[in-house]
Every structure is written in C-alpha cells, then in structure tokens.
C-alpha cells in the first residue's frame, strides 16, 4: 500500500461554536465541544468559508473541548468577532512544534500572545507568569490565572506595574537563580528582548514566532524565517535555533514573499 493516505487532520471540519467568551477589549475566546490531539504551543487553521483562513493558537484544551483566542484587528478577525454560539467555522490541525514544558520556568505573554502560552501554563507546576498589555482593558486571562503566581504589567500603568514585561523578567531572573527556562509569546520585538535577557542570564528560552501562513503543513514556503519553515519547524523555537535566526526580531515576509522589517510587517498586517 502506498503512504498517500489522507492526513485526516488536514481536512477542515466544520465545527459549531459552543461558547464565546469576551476575554478583554477586542479579544474573544471561541470554544468547541470537540476532541483535539494537541500539544502546548500548537495552532489550528481556522476557516470562515468564503472569506479567509488564518492560524490560531489553541488557548484552552481539555478532554473533548478546545478554544482559540482571537483579537479583532483585521478583516478576518473582525468577522470572527461577530460570530456567535451556534455558528460554524472550519478547523484543521493542530500544526507546528510545541513548548518543552520543563519546570522552574517563567512564562512571558504580551497581549493576545498569552493565548499561545496558556495551554503551557495549564500543565506547568507553579510557573511565574508575566502578563503584559498596553492597558488594563487589554489584559486577558486575569480571572483564569488569578490563583497563579502572576505579575502584571501595563504600558500606561492602569493595572499592575507600569512598564514592560521585559523589565519584570530582568528583575525575576536577577532575584531567582533557580529559573531554568523562559517561555514567551507576544510582539516580536518583545520576544527578541526576552531572548536577549535570557542569554545574559544564561537561561534557556523558547519563543513562539508568527509569520504569514497559508498551508500550515510546510509546502507553500510563505512563512520562511531564514531556512526555517515557521509552520512546521516552528512556531516554537528554542535558544539554539533563535540564535541562528538572523531574521528574528528584524525581518519578516509579506503575503507576496517580499522581505520587510518587522515594524513594516506588523503595520501591514494590523
């Protein structure tokens, strides 16, 4: 027999949204009563028929239930934002590499980037969580992690400490020599700083990177970061890999394949 069998996960399944939870301003979680075989940090491709399909990290994962958390910033996510319980979207995956989930860890999430590290937080033993956003209204998962060891930072000081997650990380690593690894997801400039701080403190780092994706299974070549295919080699990369990725924190490719600075990339996609 040939191996040309269908990879079942690659066919979108039309799933009914079982619940919608407003997590914070412009950010909602969409729940599905459906089992999914998933590791922390992996993502699904979410399809709105007739519109578009985008990668979304799995942000809640239980037996027979999962969710993703989306921030309404563009054409696709604004349409998602209007969907209600009972509406259907196409789901395929999960895809990509995962976090190593080692103990004695710090998890740094910036804005909706918290969604990519949340299933990781759920399986770690007592991690230090650094949750940052531009202001109080944009902080997600505040109730979800209220009993955890969480430090909150906002750019404007409207909640928690005024300042950046990276400043807090620097303090935490200076005061706590037991920390072995830092997991992070958020704006790439933040993750770049997180990585640099980890290098200085000689602590391992794993970061979940974002690039424009189309296929999700390593064929189309749109999501290249240097020689790495973000959707299959990533999205989670470790220190050794990050060290070799000269484009990390500097360049990304647009939908057309043109290489631009990270700043331009975020402006084009916002």
């Amino acid at each position: 027999m040939s191996n040309n069998e269908l990879k079942k996960n690659d066919i979108p399944q039309m799933l009914e949204i079982s619940d919608v939870v407003q997590e914070a301003k412009e950010q909602k979680s969409f729940f599905f009563r459906h089992p999914i075989d998933c590791k922390p940090g992996q993502f699904t491709m979410v399809w709105i028929p007739g519109l578009d399909e985008k990668p979304m990290a799995v942000s809640y994962w239980k037996r027979n239930e999962f969710a993703f958390t989306s921030k309404a910033i563009g054409k696709f996510t604004n349409s998602l934002d209007k969907l209600k319980k009972g509406d259907k979207v196409g789901i395929r995956g999960p895809y990509g590499s995962c976090f190593s989930a080692r103990q004695n860890s710090v998890v740094v999430g910036g804005g909706v980037g918290m969604a990519s590290v949340s299933t990781l937080i759920d399986i770690l033993k007592n991690p230090i969580i650094i949750n940052g956003a531009r202001s109080k209204d944009y902080l997600i998962y505040m109730k979800r992690y209220k009993n955890k060891n969480m430090v909150v930072a906002t750019d404007d000081g409207s909640y928690g400490k005024k300042g950046f997650t990276t400043d807090i990380l620097n303090e935490v690593l200076s005061n706590n020599k037991k920390i072995k690894i830092v997991y992070t997801c958020g704006q790439e400039m933040m993750m770049k700083k997180v990585f640099e701080i980890c290098q200085r403190h000689k602590v391992e780092c794993e970061a979940s990177l974002e690039r424009y994706m189309a296929c999700g299974f390593g064929i189309c070549g749109k999501c290249m970061i240097n020689d790495k295919i973000c959707c299959v080699d990533g999205p989670v990369f470790n220190s050794r890999q990050l060290n070799k990725l000269s484009e990390f924190g500097k360049f990304a490719r647009l939908k057309s394949g043109r290489k631009v600075t990270i700043k331009e990339y975020h402006e084009m996609h916002a």
Partner: peptide
Amino acid sequence: ERKGFDNPTMFAYDGTFLNAVGLPGQGIDS
C-alpha cells in the same frame, strides 16, 4: 509584486492536492 489570493489557497484531499495561491511573488526587481 503580487499578494496572491486569500486563504484557503492549498488543500489536501484523498490522493489529491488542490491549490489556488494566485501567483504571489515579490516581483522580479525585489
């Protein structure tokens, strides 16, 4: 420079692969 089509642009179905990526590309000058 061409952005190509919106997703889905590629799908795998039983021994069939289907795509309409829309010839995205950065253009020859870039």
